[in-house]
């Protein structure tokens, strides 16, 4: 465990807790893409199946359990408890356009042709694009609430820190995982445009809105 991974994980945790807290506190999930949240839920569940097969550390097990629990809670709030506030008219990205190709790719490009490994690979690929419905929704409505922007910034920071973590691990541990690195870089690139808007607008106290 290096500092970049730890801060990245904490940033990841902060992001998902922030989103859950925002929905709970405002009793509304307006502006939040339920489809992105379903895909993140799928990401955690398919990746963390190893909770049942091998133990790594208390930290690892606890974080995995929290991620799965928070993801399920968020999906529950969006699709059940606060369903009336869910902005489905603007959440129109088709999930199958991501899940089907990503599933196919996981079958073709993986480290090992076993069920657990293919599901792990699927989750890595899916995570890299899971945020697209959320970004698509923001581009459709032309704006994002400030807390949603903070959520995206914390999530993007986690990805960027993981890249630094991989550089560190390559130099100091001689370890690298090409699947995780390529998918992680793709994912981080998707946040770049958002990062720019966040720094130029939200950090200066303005709401994130796209130019007309």
């Amino acid at each position: 465990m290096n500092i970049f991974r730890l801060v990245g994980d904490l940033s990841h945790l902060l992001a998902i807790l922030l989103l859950l807290w925002k929905i709970w506190k405002t009793r509304s999930c307006a502006g939040v893409s339920g489809k992105s949240q379903i895909m993140f839920g799928l990401v955690y569940i398919t990746r963390y199946l190893d909770l049942f097969t091998n133990f790594i550390s208390i930290y690892n097990t606890t974080m995995k359990a929290i991620f799965i629990a928070v993801a399920i809670a968020t999906i529950y709030l969006i699709y059940f408890k606060f369903k009336a506030t869910y902005d489905s008219n603007h959440d129109t990205f088709r999930m199958e356009f991501l899940i089907v190709p990503v599933g196919g790719l996981a079958f073709l490009v993986n480290h090992d042709f076993t069920a657990l490994e293919i599901l792990w690979t699927f989750s890595i690929y899916l995570e890299s694009v899971a945020i697209l419905p959320q970004l698509f929704m923001i581009s459709k409505t032309g704006e994002a609430e400030t807390i949603t922007s903070h959520y995206l910034f914390a999530l993007g920071s986690y990805r960027a820190l993981y890249i630094v973590n991989w550089v560190y691990r390559y130099y100091f541990e001689g370890f690298f995982d090409l699947i995780a690195i390529v998918a992680g870089c793709v994912q981080t690139i998707l946040y770049c445009d958002f990062f720019y808007l966040y720094v130029t607008k939200v950090m200066h106290g303005k709401k994130l809105s796209l130019p007309a």
Binding site: M1, R5, D9, H12, D50, N54, I56, S57, N60, M63, K64, F67, W120, Y162, N165, R169, E173, F175, D177, I179, A180
Partner: peptide, 10 residues
């Protein structure tokens, strides 16, 4: 099974 370092990442 052998220890796979990428699986200790979240």
């Amino acid at each position: 099974s052998k220890f796979d370092p990428s699986k200790d990442e979240l």
